[in-house]
Amino acid sequence: MRLRAERLGARRGEDLLFSDISFDLGSGDALVLTGRNGSGKSTLLRVVAGLLPAEAGRVLWTGKDETVRAGEACHYLGHRNAMKAELTVRENLVFWKSFLGDLEGGAGMSVVEAADRVGLGGIAHLPFGYLSAGQQRRMAFAKLLVAYRPVWILDEPTAALDTRAEQTFTDLIKQHLAAGGMLLAATHQPLGLENARELRMTGFSDLPEAFLQ
């Protein structure tokens, strides 16, 4: 399994945010995007997930099934949690488990187990809207566990989390990588991964004007 990006470029309105970004992820690889606000981290993640069109370049997925698009092999956890406040946590997770399904080559956990793994097994009967911001984030993370996807795309995954929850996250990510998964994350805080590669996004604002012409 490989996720490759070839000379990606993207535009936000009129402005070119980044260009000529290439990377190649194999099983067990992690790539962490860092950089200032507005340097295009989130945009790059959305381009890889197939949610934004690329201005240039392409994203390629090679796996067991040749027909799978890159986006279908990915879990995307953005700024918003994609959970319904009116439904209980269990209803939310059961829905995503059956709607997302498992990609060939793995199987997701049961809903109860996933809730336990993020440390919130006892409150799955509550409506999602009743949880605190940190608990909501943890439950959104449980969504990644109920359906199998080899690639996890995480956008600021540890926002609103306490240190213990951050540790839980890091452990879950390590298990995912050890099982042959891949990680693509944008973050300000270090995730505590040992052999993660780093892609520093600088944006174009640091370059002299003449260079851009």
Binding site: L51, R80, N81, K84, F99
Partner: peptide
């Protein structure tokens, strides 16, 4: 769209 579910729906096969 507001809670981000639309992104996940758009990504599926």
């Amino acid at each position: 769209r507001e809670d981000g579910s639309l992104d996940l729906i758009l990504m599926q096969e």
